[in-house]
Amino acid sequence: MKRLIKKTLLGLFGGALIVGSLGACSQRGPGGWHAGADGSPEFRARMVEKVGSKLDLDAAQKQKLDVLADKLQAQRAALRGASDPRVAVRGLFVGDKLDQAGAKKLIAEKTAAIQAGSPEVIAAAADFFDNLRPEQQQKVREFMERGRRWGHRG
């Protein structure tokens, strides 16, 4: 049973890390996902509009996508924490030896943030995806299969 819990937590942590990384990598300028918990309303509106046009979403579906974007951004902000995570990781390597207690504490904090916010993110993602038409769901699957943003050149 412990092994299953560890694998589940690792999977959730990895998933949240990937979602946060994708949000960070898709950033093109000031604001957006890098702006923290409040974010850039313009970036979010553009993202919802772009995805909405690619999937041909109706108003109700766009609203569900907006809720999902809110939950993802809140989860990313919770995972990031109050300080720059790069500084926290670099802090583990300042002494002669790796600060194992600090590393365990950092992992525990990140895991707790994932556990706290994941149910809301999963529910919002399910609500959005489950309310798409079959052809829209197929477009989402194809996008995820490609592993990159829509309209990406190169």
Score class of each variant (00 low, 15 high):
D38Y: 08
G15P: 04
G14A: 15
Q73G: 08
A59I: 11
G31H: 05
D96L: 11
I18N: 05
A103N: 03
A103W: 05
V87H: 03
L17F: 15
A124V: 07
A37D: 11
G147L: 08
G20Y: 05
K50N: 06
A123L: 06
L98F: 13
L10N: 15
Q136F: 04
G15H: 03
A16S: 13
F13D: 03
G151L: 11
F13H: 15
L92K: 10
V87S: 13
Q136C: 08
M144R: 11
V121S: 01
E135Q: 14
G36M: 02
K105V: 02
E120W: 01
E120I: 01
A60Q: 15
A78H: 06
A124N: 03
K2W: 08
I114Q: 03
F128Q: 01
K54I: 01
D38C: 01
L57W: 05
M47E: 12
A60W: 08
Q27R: 12
L106D: 05
L55R: 05
H152E: 10
S40H: 10
G147Q: 13
L79V: 08
G147T: 03
G11N: 10
K110N: 07
L106S: 12
K7T: 09
R153G: 01
G15S: 10
I107H: 07
S53R: 15
H34V: 11
S53T: 14
L106N: 04
A69M: 06
R141W: 10
V19G: 13
G91R: 02
C25Q: 13
R46K: 14
S21N: 07
A77F: 05
